[in-house]
Design a protein around this nucleic acid. Structure first.
Lengths: 200, 200
DNA sequence: GTCTATAAATGGATAGAC
DNA sequence: GTCTATCCATTTATAGAC
């Protein structure tokens, strides 16, 4: 029953659907069945609520980076089945993670008018995924699993496929399993097609 | 000096940056150097302004569909250079078109809480592009330019590449030529890589 | 078609009691 | 930590003059 936590969770949920500016402190407190003054006890003002959420994402990104690195250290080879498994996990555990998904929605709105949100969005959606993919494809080229020619484009195309499936089927939907399954099916199919094109 | 037009243009510009709810009628009229009552002469209320914009996009989509169809009717063959040209034109004239680009931004925000915006967004960003691409790839398979195996995934992957380049470099930026050039460079490179993978 | 003036609602934020 | 009560700015929208 930590209300500070609740406030952050409810705020994230509402900001992710309508955007920071469009959600009032009254709205948030209404859902929490608390008065505004209760919220102002925990946060200096409305902006501080948003800043606290930004800090949470940054922490989350770092913790994901280290789990990624740990998992990668144990990889020895990547065939088609492994690649499909990794892709689906990437989609499900990263993009579709209920927290991450809400952050992406919120940042999608805020980045248009907030430079800080823009930087965090890029980190979460482009820089981090691309960085990890590059490591995997480099390994695959080294092991002579995929063609060396055109390797500098693999990560971008690969990430495009996954992010696009997320965007098309899951983005903005309230954690619908149906939507996730659709995205997974699309990723499985397209990643298989892509793998067949690049393998030696 | 048609003020109704100006109102729509300014509203679109502001909605695309901050979202419908976060922009006040005062903001819009401030930029127009008009009083709110002037706006309420042309539009029943704030919502009517948004509805008029939605109608504009729907009209724009239809007009684009017919230009696309006309251009397609004249195509006889598609080699690598043609494919790159079409891709760049797709990116520049469609997604980066200053009007379309603002609509995409606005709809990106509104679709999260507005079912109508969601439908229009899908039409503009997924359905229309995919529909056109399918026609081109079918022709390419028929002419034995690209491999038949995996053809059902070509359009999705192709559109992912282009939309992702748009999203990464252009989305949300105020019509920066620099940003467009970056996206064009990325598309050129990735589409070439993709073409080499699928050609016979 | 646009202006001034103003109503009515909503939103951010604080003081002080419990 | 939360509540009641309240303040003041912002916002949507309208009436009536020009």
């Amino acid at each position: 029953m930590n209300n500070r936590e609740n406030m952050l969770n409810v705020a994230l949920d509402m900001f992710s659907k309508r955007g920071y500016k469009a959600v009032s402190v009254r709205d948030i407190c209404g859902k929490l069945k608390l008065k505004e003054s209760a919220l102002y006890y925990h946060f200096k003002n409305k902006q501080a609520l948003l800043d606290a959420l930004y800090q949470r994402i940054l922490d989350l990104i770092e913790s994901m980076r280290s789990s990624f690195d740990q998992a990668f250290a144990m990889i020895t080879s990547v065939g088609m089945e492994e690649m499909k498994m990794v892709s689906v996990s990437f989609l499900k555990d990263y993009f579709c993670n209920s927290h991450v998904s809400k952050f992406i929605s919120m940042l999608t709105i805020e980045r248009l008018s907030d430079a800080k949100a823009y930087r965090i969005y890029r980190k979460l959606v482009y820089d981090m995924p691309l960085e990890q993919c590059d490591k995997v494809f480099k390994l695959m080229v080294q092991k002579r699993i995929v063609k060396a020619a055109g390797q500098e484009n693999y990560s971008k195309i690969y990430c495009s496929i996954i992010f696009n499936a997320y965007n098309e089927h899951v983005f903005g939907k309230t954690a619908s399993t149906r939507a996730v399954e659709k995205a997974v099916a699309q990723v499985n199919q397209e990643i298989e097609a892509f793998y067949k094109l690049i393998r030696i």
